[in-house]
Design a protein around this nucleic acid. Structure first.
Lengths: 124, 124, 124, 124
DNA sequence: GTGGTCTAGACCACT
DNA sequence: GTGGTCTAGACCACC
């Protein structure tokens, strides 16, 4: 059995995921300026290099663009954001279904549970 | 923004969740004997105290029972297991929906996505 | 006019290009074991992190594969190597033609020059 | 393996090649006056001595002429320019072919690739 | 011993 | 002040 506690999920990966979520969820809008590496790293309490690595990854994915002199920006390519969001959702769904399956719920059960599920109005 | 990386998300909590999942998913059956704390802790690579704390929590919940003389057992109270499972599922659903909401999918969207989602044939 | 002397082409980029060329030219064969990061970095006289970055890039491109415990290997996916090689050649050709154009040779001239060019038998 | 990164590929050589290219490509015409060393060096961001060395080399080659009183000029000897251009092209071709050979393309392959290569319409 | 990650701190180019 | 790169040196997980 795999007993690896997620304590060791690389920090820069966690940063990537967090920022990715903020972008695809719209917390950061396309074209928004991103704070300087140094500020972000200080804010997050990590080394600038670590933050740099995370941002580099986001740029590689296409969610950010860099202008050497004027800073970083959220991509203005809506298509990429949309696609990333759909991939993310698909993965969430997949994991969710896998978990539910392991609990013994089949697809029909899941649909029923979801249909009956009352949406909370207040959201934390 | 909260930048606490889950490096320190209490390990015992992670153990509790893992074992809870194994019980409600049927990997551990009702009445099964649970391995000694020392074995479990070694297997998981954690301090025995940590494992002890996790098992204590499971006992508190009612999923395990301790007989001072013959060790620890999974509860044989099916009702508790069933109820825990339902709560667990409900929470999974709730979290899932919250995530999807934050991505901009409403309940109808989610149902559509799930309906269209093609189940994987191979499982784990 | 751009007077940037290539003195500042990032070292890790130069390493990437060099290794890429060795792979697509067949100096490194598919599946070959790559020396450990530390050895390579010492050999090249750079910091291990710099070499790591270069190798990471090559892995990202798909020319190398990493096995956490047993080291790095040249990819065994011939298709990727072939494709990379073709892209590389295409770029070389493009640059070559652009240079020749600027010298005043058009495509026909270039073909004539190449046809007349006597291959050297001894190579350096 | 030779791991010398071109960080120190003599800058004056790079300048020589650049200026040589500008002359043989016609960006500088025969007989044109050359800007003063001090201006050129400032423009290129190099030490005047470095620029001086480069210009001296170009003079040695015969592409520039110095009149002690009125400054430096591009040679008005078309023959030299033409010859230099042909040598330059020959070298480009030679290097190009050597690279392609190392990639595994023989002369026939190269001619095919070039024939198929579609010229870009826009040229800087 | 392997790769991977992280920190601290520095320097560079560009503007 | 911006991002980018590099070094030195450390620690971790895995086998």
């Amino acid at each position: 059995m795999a007993w690896d506690f997620d304590s060791d999920r690389a920090i820069y990966i966690q940063i990537v995921e967090r920022l990715k979520f903020m972008i695809i969820s719209g917390a950061y809008k396309k074209g928004d300026k991103v704070s300087p590496v140094r500020d972000l790293s200080k804010e997050a309490g990590v080394n600038p290099n670590t933050m740099q690595k995370a941002l580099g990854e986001l740029e590689r994915i296409g969610l950010m663009q860099t202008s050497r002199t004027s800073g970083r920006y959220i991509t203005d390519d809506e298509e990429i954001i949309k696609r990333t969001k759909e991939e993310f959702a698909e993965e969430k769904i997949s994991l969710f279904i896998k978990d539910m399956n392991r609990l013994g719920y089949d697809k029909k059960d899941i649909l029923n549970l979801l249909t009956d599920f009352k949406m909370e109005e207040k959201d934390e």
